[in-house]
Amino acid sequence: MSVVEDPARSIQLTDDGDLRHFLTLDGLDRTMLTRILDTADSFIEVGARRIKNVPLLRGSTVVNLFFESSTRTRSTFELAAKRLSADVLNLDIGTSATAKGESLSDTLLNLEAMASDMFVVRHSRSGAAHFIASQVTPGVAIINAGDGRHSHPTQAMLDMLTIRQHKGGFEGLKVAIVGDILHSRVARAQIRALNTLGVEEVRVIAPDTLLPTDVESLGCRVDDSMQSGLADVDVIIMLRLQRERMEGALLPSEREFYRVYGLSNEKLAWAHPEAIVMHPGPINRGVEIESAVADGPQSVILDQVTNGIAIRMAVMSMAMGGQRATAWNRTGEGSS
């Protein structure tokens, strides 16, 4: 048959195999993911200094292009960019431009006139970051801050960093992801990252209505019950449940969801005694997770927030570096 090659790899990597965009974890090998984690470790050390800024992105302009509002995610990207000494522009255009009927490509053309060096993009459509990367002028880096149900690669990587900090590595780990996999860009990215980094097993626990068709092809095992799914796992990742899921006949009620899938101390006891509990936030207490667990000793949810800044500094500086090196190699000139 005619094969159409997955261009995910070529679009986000330079000829030398370095990052130039960060759109998806598809096509990134273990070496690259490990490099991202290692670089983030260095940025964590920077965060402990008296002056927490490094000059890597001095003179660069980073535009936070949020078509879907998320104050939390945008703030961590903003802080990460500022710690890299970039100038930051926040644009929440979720309701303005598109409501006026302006197409995404027109919006982009207008923004490019501002001579930006990097767009951090969040959009409600899967593939939006890929699309924008395919449209921008060479030299501009695109960082995916969440596109539809597709991917949220920085979230997944900060989760990997958190797991590595607590478990020392990935080999032999059993990881359970619980909840709405179908609509979750976080879960898709996590499953990919965990497989690439070589965990022993990824289990997804959810009713069939919240699982994508062929979910196993992502590299995970489906468990219908919490008891069997959590048995002996080292890491439990709870996903956020959006309330509108009740409307589409995907779930009967929050109460029933909590009863079956909500992580209580009782269910947590089924996991390995040293299992850590993660959640990408914001948490619906009493829907996905009991407060006692979210705030309990096995919860690492606050570490995730800290690691978020370091991971974003890592991918932003790596992608900007890849763009700059490519431009240097192309023209034989630099701006240093």
């Binding site: 596109d147 597709h150 068709t213 062929d214 979910v215």
Partner: peptide, 15 residues
């Protein structure tokens, strides 16, 4: 198509 690719790319599938 509701299958491998929609699972991976997070697209809404037509079963």
């Amino acid at each position: 198509h509701d299958g491998r690719i929609t699972a991976r790319l997070g697209l809404v599938g037509v079963p």
